[in-house]
């Protein structure tokens, strides 16, 4: 995605946010447009966020998951969504466990496809809401800013999208985490810090990633206790940032593991701003896609 496209989405999102603040919570960009939410992986916040965004733009919304769909009867992903598209659904929001599946679907479907998270690849609307949150915190300037991303970088689509977006807008990224959860040096365009303290020192923001339970099962991390002690964000560590440094977390949080409650609920935390920005960014993305499809 180009810098121009990113900035256009952020500007549109800001516009929605301002309108909502003035009490204008609905608009008609997606009036008469049918949008399908196809979530083949568990999701609460992203799915609700997309549904809210769709409804605020006036869309007609159908949502389904793999459990309640014919995927559970053995139908392929493509067949299921081709059926949905054939029924006239113009935009399909997809979350799927296979990296690259939105691109695959976009090539095959006669409908617009929006990526709501594909495997361990990307989560673009999460990346965009992080950018919007940081644009506010950083008063519009990305150049010369630095964010630390801490945790399971290797398996994180949130980290990939954030790194891509931040680098595109000119910010620096430092990543840190246990060696078992890190890409090799130079594989993502981010500097690698050996400790969380070094990553945070002088940073303008920090993003803590959720530590998945599976990482213990596959022996990437011995225990949440050790992880919290070595890599967790606590009050002392976040003070290593600049005075204006903010704390992000994509949610859902493991309080006491990657982030203490003190930090999560503290003055530097912008976690709830992220949630609000998520709806705005998704409105912007939906409106852009509908425009591209010539539906409004």
């Amino acid at each position: 995605m180009s810098r121009e496209s990113i900035l256009d989405i952020l500007d549109r999102a800001e516009h929605y946010r301002s309108a909502w603040k003035l009490g204008r919570r609905t608009s008609r960009e997606l009036e008469d447009v049918e949008v399908g939410n196809a979530f083949f992986e568990d999701s609460t916040r992203t799915r609700i966020s997309f549904e809210l965004a769709e409804r605020r733009l006036g869309a007609r919304v159908v949502s389904f998951t793999s459990d309640g769909s014919s995927i559970s009867k053995g139908e392929t992903l493509l067949d299921t969504l081709q059926t949905v598209a054939a029924m006239g659904v113009a935009l399909i929001v997809v979350r799927h466990g296979s990296a690259g599946s939105p691109g695959y679907l976009a090539r095959h479907l006669d409908a617009g496809v929006i990526n709501a998270g594909d495997g361990e690849h990307e989560h673009p609307t999460q990346g965009l809401l992080d950018l919007l949150t940081l644009r506010d915190a950083w008063r519009g300037r990305f150049e010369g800013r630095r964010i630390a991303i801490v945790g399971d970088i290797a398996h994180s689509r949130v980290a990939r999208s954030a790194i891509f977006g931040l680098r595109t807008l000119g910010a620096e990224v430092t990543i840190a985490g246990p060696a078992t959860l890190m890409p090799r040096e130079g594989e993502l365009s981010a500097a690698v810090a050996p400790t969380v303290e070094e990553a945070l020192q002088g940073a303008d923001a920090v993003m803590a990633l959720r530590l998945q339970r599976e990482r213990m099962d596959e022996a990437s991390v011995p225990s949440t206790r050790e992880y919290a002690r070595v890599w967790g964000l606590n009050a002392e560590r976040v003070e290593l940032m600049t005075a204006e440094g903010v704390v992000l977390h994509p949610g859902p949080m493991n309080r006491g593991v990657e982030i203490t409650s003190e930090v999560a609920d503290g003055s530097r935390s912008v976690v709830l701003d992220q949630v609000e920005n998520g709806v705005a960014v998704r409105c912007a993305v939906l409106a852009r896609c509908a425009e591209a499809l010539g539906r409004c």
Binding site: A99, H121, E187
Partner: peptide
């Protein structure tokens, strides 16, 4: 390797 990391594939 780098391509797998970029694509988010194990």
């Amino acid at each position: 390797g780098p391509t797998a990391t970029r694509l988010g594939l194990r």
